[in-house]
Computed example of a mutant assay.
Amino acid sequence: MTTAAPASRRITAQSTFELRAVLRNGEQVMVTVLLPLILLGGLARATFVALDTGGATRIDLVTPGVLAFALMSSAFTSPAITTAFDRRNGVLRLMATTPLGPTGLLVGKLAAVLAVQVMQVVVIGGAAVALGWRPEPGGILPAVVAWLLGTTAWGAAALLAAGRVRAEAVIALANLVLVLLAFGGVVLPASVLPAGLAHVVGWLPSGALGEALRAALLHGTWAAGPLAVLAVWAVALSAAAARWFRWS
């Protein structure tokens, strides 16, 4: 009698498949890697964009925000779109009945997202270092915490959208959210926005992720407020996704 492969092997195979699917999709590579690189180079070198750097170099100020944007795009846009189409085509329901199971499928997707994000950090961070970025070493740990909380929040948001909205609408929703939030306290500090809007942005998972990474990588500090906001969003969105996600 044939037996199923160990759970670790099944999950590894699924995550490898998910990762290859992302890397073979030119649109996703554009959103997750090329667009952040364009933003990085443009904001670091363009003189027509006035920035109050507070004594820091432009590259030191913009790099954490660009990394936040990149991590947000890989955690939300790609998983939301691919999962929505998998649900519409019946793939999720079929995969949930295999030895991989629902948990293995979700863990495989998460592992693929994290692998993409590691690549983003290496490529974008490497480009930033070449442009003169010097991150604060003491901020590495708080940056990793912000990264994981942000990925949890946006990954859960992706599942929630994919499990409740029609696949075609998810494409528009995912890209619209990415564009609207990219410049709302993520790529650039909320301080560049009007006062009322800046206050609202600070309570969003996008703005909180940008502020937490800037505090960590620019000043080497723990941004307690933004990290708390991220933690609340991560818990709330995870609970909502677990409650309302539909497999078919």
Rank of each mutant, 00 (worst) to 15 (best):
A13D: 15
S15A: 13
T16P: 01
T16C: 08
R20M: 12
A21Y: 12
T32A: 05
V33I: 15
V33H: 11
L35H: 05
G42W: 15
A50H: 15
A56C: 05
L61K: 08
G65V: 14
A70R: 09
S73I: 12
S74F: 09
S78R: 07
P79W: 12
P79A: 10
T82F: 02
D86A: 10
D86E: 12
R93Q: 13
P99N: 04
G104T: 05
V107F: 04
L110F: 13
V121N: 04
V123W: 13
I124P: 08
A127W: 02
A130C: 10
W133N: 05
W133H: 08
G139M: 10
I140H: 06
P142E: 05
V145H: 02
W147M: 11
A157G: 13
A158L: 10
L159F: 14
L159Q: 10
G163F: 11
R164Q: 00
V165K: 00
A169T: 04
A172E: 02
L173F: 05
L176G: 11
L176W: 01
V177H: 05
L180N: 01
A182M: 09
G184P: 05
G184D: 09
L193T: 04
A195G: 04
A198P: 07
H199Q: 14
G202S: 02
G210F: 05
A212V: 00
H219K: 10
G220H: 01
V232D: 05
V232H: 00
A234T: 08
A236N: 02
A236V: 15
A242I: 12
R243P: 03
R246M: 12
W247Y: 06
